[in-house]
């Protein structure tokens, strides 16, 4: 099981009496896109919030295999999950820094690296060469990603002024700037048209294949899920009701039941 990137065991999250996630066990592989699907309110985003430290899970364990070094995600609180464990995420409702330029958004994502390079601002204040060099490198990385999503010529515009589809893509590449091991995407295709959706698929495949970054995906758009998922986990009322390949999922009676209901 050295190929396992994320190993979630018996994850449970309760809000008072409400059980949002009930004893969920699943794993995600390093070179896979793992999708979590399910009807609204099934607890998909809650899983993300537990993984990325925004919620503290009530019970269960979450381990990340980082270069064969097993890290317990429960040990990290909010920002440390991104900083120390290298788990990046995007949000269902886009969370860019709208009044800051596209390039600045990318630079903020490389904050921790640059903070060290700037000697916690002291070297930066005196214009130290080593910091300027690091800043240039960070700009190169930003440019590399912006080239991929075709936004380089808008790098100096405010992120909030971009079209919706571009904002989605920007949020994903911004998350990639922290060089994550696991990228968690919360409904990246929501509100995209067919062409933008196809572009997104391409981008996600590129991240998976070329960047060797595992992807965990929450999605409603079945064309995206079926097109790129290597593995699908289906949730309903916080419980896992099915797990398998995209094809198996499509034909599973439990899944059809959860989505469409049964005949009485």
């Amino acid at each position: 099981m050295s190929n396992t990137l994320l190993d979630v065991q018996n994850l449970t999250m309760k809000f008072g009496g409400l059980i949002a996630i009930d004893d969920l066990t699943f794993s995600a592989k390093k070179d896979h896109i793992t999708s979590i699907i399910g009807p609204n309110g099934a607890g998909k985003t809650t899983v993300f919030n537990c993984l990325t430290g925004f919620y503290k899970a009530t019970a269960g364990s979450m381990y990340l295999n980082k270069e064969n070094n097993k890290m317990d995600l429960k040990k990290f609180s909010d920002f440390k999950v991104a900083q120390k464990a290298g788990v990046a995420r995007t949000f269902q409702n886009i969370r860019l820094f709208p009044q800051m330029s596209v390039l600045e958004n990318m630079m903020v994502a490389q904050h921790n690296k640059l903070m060290v390079a700037s000697g916690f601002s002291i070297l930066g204040l005196i214009n130290s060469k080593s910091y300027l060099q690091k800043e240039k490198e960070a700009m190169e990385i930003s440019k590399y990603w912006l080239d991929i999503i075709g936004l380089t010529n808008r790098a100096d515009d405010n992120a909030g002024d971009l079209p919706y589809g571009d904002q989605r893509k920007l949020e994903i590449v911004r998350a990639m700037c922290i060089e994550p091991h696991l990228l968690c995407l919360d409904e990246p295709a929501a509100g995209l048209n067919a062409k933008e959706s196809a572009d997104l698929n391409k981008l996600l495949k590129f991240i998976k294949n070329d960047k060797k970054t595992g992807i965990l995906l929450i999605e409603h758009d079945m064309s995206v899920v079926m097109g790129i998922s290597d593995h699908v986990v289906v949730l309903n009322y916080g419980k896992k009701i099915f797990e398998g390949t995209a094809k198996e999922t499509k034909n599973s009676p439990e899944v059809i039941e959860a989505y469409l209901g049964t005949e009485d």
Binding site: R95, E104, M107
Partner: peptide
Amino acid sequence: PVGRAWEALREDEIACKSLG
């Protein structure tokens, strides 16, 4: 970086956390 982080924090604290 610290100045940019200040502004990013003003814009969206949750996004900041998600970026470490």
